[in-house]
Design a protein around this nucleic acid. Sequence first.
DNA 1: GCGTTTAAATTGTCAGACATTTAAATGTAA
DNA 2: TTACATTTAAATGTCTGACAATTTAAACGC
Lengths: 246, 246
Amino acid sequence: MKIDPDNKADLSAQIAEAIREEIMAGRLIVDERLPSEAELADHFEVSRPTVREALKRLAAQSLIRTARGAFGGAFVNRLSYPEAYGQHITTSTLLLSMNAISFDVACEARYALERACTPLAAARRTPDTLATMRAEIHRQGQPGLTDESFCASDVTFHRALVDSADNPVLSYQLAGAVEAMQPLMNMITFTARSREAIVGFHTRIADALERHEADAAQAALSELEAYTLTLGRDVMAARARPRQPA
Amino acid sequence: MKIDPDNKADLSAQIAEAIREEIMAGRLIVDERLPSEAELADHFEVSRPTVREALKRLAAQSLIRTARGAFGGAFVNRLSYPEAYGQHITTSTLLLSMNAISFDVACEARYALERACTPLAAARRTPDTLATMRAEIHRQGQPGLTDESFCASDVTFHRALVDSADNPVLSYQLAGAVEAMQPLMNMITFTARSREAIVGFHTRIADALERHEADAAQAALSELEAYTLTLGRDVMAARARPRQPA
DNA sequence: GCGTTTAAATTGTCAGACATTTAAATGTAA
DNA sequence: TTACATTTAAATGTCTGACAATTTAAACGC
């Protein structure tokens, strides 16, 4: 962890990058203490505020954590699942909202990923995850439910489906895809009729998983995807021409 | 963007969080200019260094970018695909390397996700992506190839497979899974025999995609997964008992 | 031997200053 | 008038020095 040539980029960015590389390469290991801010400032020949800005960059990526007091300092942080989930969801949500991703493309990606979990979920679903899915299906049938609550319940249902695969890496990867879709899903207005249809698909999925029938679950998911797509397209079309049709 | 109660957390973290929420909620839109550091310091009633630390946190997540000079400042950044890829790969790699994820679990997740792309890839593969896959297969057959180059070529092959699906959201999601596996894959020593087998699987996949046969491609992927798993388990077992067997 | 106090180390925050960069405004000459 | 050079202003980047808050360990007293 040495070098800062006569680069013209921000010093704090260079220092953060140098430390990140040490961590990524495993030369700084989990829970290891970094030198104090004063020592880092001396080492890199910069001032303490510059070092602090670099450390804050690393902290924002959950690469380090800091503690005050004697024997405090900056420590290499073990990236936990919740932290990784949060980072992934933030990034995915922004990517979708800022880049004019079409509803079709996002929808296709989401359901393709969910179908990937289905064989594992059908093999490993537990009474617990099934119960979660059944409870959300029941909630989705309640007439007084707001659109926001319906969407939130939809997310919970699909997360239970993903978690049924019992693979934390898969759950982590899928979390971004499912959660990031929510703002797009919220744009769809759910009528009573469309809610009824969605509840029907969810029921078919839960039934198929309960019977360990992966193919049936995938088929239901594919039909749900097609249905969601038509709902999305109708909304988009209605927005494109506000009040034109005779 | 208002409040910082008598919270005891770092002021710079609170300020960064407040601004991030504004961006996530869409109240600060892409390319919009934030107030200057001096104005933010005045608004939040903190000093400029504290504001700067908050802004560096946001910059580390690619939420803002800064420009010097007159009419410079901090601007809400449009999260690009390359930036999102980088964030995702960093997070995924650290999650896997720091949490004692078993080879089996990581492998299962990776191939499940790749199989999710296969139907789309079989339908949409182009001469271009097929050519990339063929070229990498050829490279993988060269006898003088180092293990590192073989692994890099393996990543390129699988990325071409994913990109064949022609869905940028899917490519983004998969990038983390494929790239993050590389350090684990690098731990496996490839003998000439195992390389030959892998090249065989890759050829079957490319052939199947060329003929638009999704099922055959998925079958080959599944067999490749099983084979990779046995390779990984052998390596793990050999490490567990260094020199015991009679 | 145990509880209390003190000291030391470290991060968090502040104030003020100067350096550097950038684009607009201004001035000047062809 | 137009083109080019200069000045100016605004903003970020960096530094210095200081003080506050926090936490642990050691010193101290009983």
